[in-house]
Design a protein around this nucleic acid. Structure first.
Lengths: 190, 190
DNA sequence: GACGATATAGACCGATCGATCTACTCGTCA
DNA sequence: TGACGAGTAGATCGATCGGTCTATATCGTC
């Protein structure tokens, strides 16, 4: 059986690390992670090889979850690609207004991991590429004249809203970004 | 005399810390800062009271310099507010393409300083507010119908370009942002 | 030339870092 | 029953953390 009734030390560690690395950054100490997960020190090194392995796995897991959240948001918005894209900004607005919002986890990791060879960088790079591909696909469905370029612009708007949301809470940057996205989507349709 | 021919330990520390905290994040060790600045350990605590004081002062100094850079960029672009604002994005494009670009220093500090009471947060908050005020002033000169709202949007575009530039180097996010800024500036003039 | 302020050099502090190790417990399955 | 794998508990490691300390050197100024 690969399934399990109670979450094992691996799952507990991943969950605790997901929360703590977001709330306090990837600089959190191993002791804090072990205590929060209620896991023996040895288990961390058995399952992940070390702190870097755990952090990388957390990023991978979160990336998959967040990508799924983008897809779920768009699916729930119906079939119109325009509505689906704008729904992303509405959802981001809710995320940003959550009381414990602390900005984009992947950008924070990108900036905090000083070692350029840390495997976490590759994860964040791929995550951004996948979100961008998701957006470009919608833009093609919309028959946008420049889907690749518009996808780059949407990525700027998304990351901008998340960044401003971290520094200036309460200014509703997602709504501001959504409005710019509308202009972008209307391109080439008079 | 308050001026000095050779930079003293205070100036050397600030300069070294400005570089190291950007390249490696605010988590850099005190030893690394002292070594890079060639300064005695004691001098750091005499001048800044501790690591946090040094970091905060670096943020303050950098904020003043960067704000001046915005103003210089706009001044060099002439008198037309539209040109002046778009020049900011051209300048950001150059900054992002610099080989050692590592994203926005203030957002990185905001995300890395886990303690919400760290005085650095106030500095980054004020910095963003001042840049926003700078932009809003230009928008008023331009007789933009919604200067405050448009300033918020420009801030999203700027932070978005810097964020994407950190994660996806070479994709020219500043140019993408500039194009969206043009739409924004043309608002209400048919 | 003496003084005081400002440096430097570096020992030293307790705390914490990430990581390794041993010893013990517990459940499973042969 | 007994061997084994997985997990816990916790001592321990060397390194590094931020910070304090003493001792010495250098400087400008009276």
């Amino acid at each position: 059986m690969t399934t399990r009734v109670l979450p094992g030390p691996r799952e507990r560690l991943l969950e605790a690390a997901k929360e703590l690395t977001y709330a306090q950054g990837v600089g959190v100490g191993v002791d804090a992670l072990l205590k929060a997960a209620n896991v023996a020190r040895r288990s961390l090194y058995e399952h992940f090889g070390g702190k870097d392995g755990l952090i990388t796995e957390v990023l991978r897991l979160s990336a998959a979850e967040d990508e799924a959240a983008y897809e779920r948001t768009m699916r729930a918005a119906g079939d119109d690609p325009r509505r689906r894209i704008l729904a992303v900004f509405d959802w981001l607005g809710e995320v940003i207004e959550e009381p414990d919002f602390r900005g984009c986890r992947y950008l924070a990791a990108e900036l905090a991991l000083a070692d350029p060879d840390h495997p976490g960088h590759e994860v964040t790079r791929r995550y951004n590429a996948r979100i961008r591909a998701l957006l470009e696909s919608e833009l093609r469905d919309l028959d946008h004249p420049r889907p690749a370029h518009a996808a780059d612009q949407l990525l700027v708007l998304i990351n901008g809203a998340l960044a401003v949301g971290a520094t200036r809470p309460g200014t509703l940057p997602a709504a501001a970004a959504r409005e710019l996205a509308e202009h972008l989507l209307d391109e080439g349709r008079g």
